[in-house]
Simulated assay, not measured.
Amino acid sequence: MNHIVLLLFSLGVSAAHCSGSHTLQYHIALVATPTPGVPQSTITAYLDGLEYGRYDSNTRRARFLTPSLSSLTEHLEMQTKCAQGFEVIQKHKMKFLIAYLNKTHGNGGRHVYQRKTVCELNEDGTIGGYEEIAFNGREVMALDKENEVYVPVTQEALTMTQQWNQYYNHAKMHKIYLENDCIQHMKLYLPLISTDMERKVSPKVKVSSSESDRGRKLHCWVYGFYPRDVKVKWIKNETDEIYSEESAEILPNPDGTYQIRVSVEVTPEEGATYSCHVVHSSLENTLVVPFESKDLSTNYITIVIAAALCLLLVLLGLYVCRKRRIKGIYFFQ
């Protein structure tokens, strides 16, 4: 479900545009219908494109994802309390949007509410920022800091935004947060997190295979890399990308690095080649790890030979039984 939320509304994470400029971003996502094992709400924090913090409704705790911020224990406790209160308010706002859309459009089913809050510290010391709100995959309104109101992104959201401003008079408060608290947090994190931003650890890669109902499954395990962003894909015959039906999730390791496993289904073909391609900021070029496709063809041939042997044994058994039956008939006659 997390992957669905991310695909619904492009909340892009951009790094600083130039040296000396910085951005701090909070991405909030809530789903109306709970899914077992999946947080109903999450808050993810980024500094210059680096994911450094996260809060979710399952643990109800904020946590730092970078070792360099681990000393800020009191600050983290304060962030946890703020996130808990913020989560409650956002659930009310999601219910408002659901009620409005059900009233006007009769929409039902799953609903996803997303919010993106960004503050900016420019190289010359000036500050900026913005806030966007999306619902069910579409951006519906944005913060107008100058007039301290939320404005509709589309004409369709005009009436809804007017009611939003009347019911939730929070625009001024969010403007103050963007221009003060958010900037102060950024200045607190930057000296500590700078080493994490510069740190790069190259990934290690292992490829393997296993049997599946439809033929063979190839696995590419990429692990021990930092920073988090990575692109992993399987390529057939050096040009054709194989798309996976499974969602691959980047997972953290205890040492602060990350890992991911990408698996694809293939049908053994004689002469076909398969390779795992990894793109990461620590690598100058794409890392290509080939899978020995001869293993696939060998396994395929082995299966065919085994099936042929089984058929031969069955036919031989039938032949022997038939000969015995004929001899038995002659004997009793």
Rank of each mutant, 00 (worst) to 15 (best):
K206R: 15
T273F: 04
S57K: 03
D196P: 04
S202D: 05
D124G: 08
C182S: 14
I305P: 00
Y167T: 11
P67V: 04
R261Y: 02
I235V: 15
F64I: 01
L121H: 13
K233V: 12
S297W: 15
I193N: 05
T161A: 08
K204A: 12
Q162V: 03
K200A: 14
I242V: 14
S263M: 10
N237P: 06
W234C: 05
A99F: 00
T286F: 02
V279Y: 04
S275M: 08
A29H: 09
S209W: 09
K206H: 13
Y330M: 08
R199W: 02
S194A: 14
R261F: 01
R216V: 15
T298Y: 12
M197K: 14
A142V: 11
V5H: 09
N180T: 15
G49F: 05
V151N: 03
L6M: 06
F225W: 03
E241K: 12
R261N: 15
A99R: 08
A83K: 04
V278P: 01
V207N: 06
Q90H: 12
S202I: 07
G53F: 02
W164L: 05
Y130S: 11
Y52K: 02
A307L: 11
P152G: 03
G108V: 10
S70I: 05
T104W: 00
G215N: 08
S70W: 00
K236C: 08
T239C: 02
V201M: 03
E269L: 13
L283M: 05
V140W: 00
R63S: 15
V201W: 01
T195K: 08
V118Q: 07
T80L: 01
Y168D: 00
I303A: 15
E238S: 14
H92P: 00
G106V: 00
G106M: 01
A15V: 08
A29L: 03
K200I: 07
Y319N: 07
T298W: 10
L6N: 10
I260G: 04
R61Q: 14
C310M: 12
T73M: 01
Y177E: 10
S208Y: 10
L309Q: 12
G53M: 01
E284Y: 08
K172E: 13
Y26C: 10
K103M: 06
E241Y: 04
R61W: 00
K206Y: 09
A29Y: 03
I329T: 11
L316H: 06
L47N: 03
K327A: 14
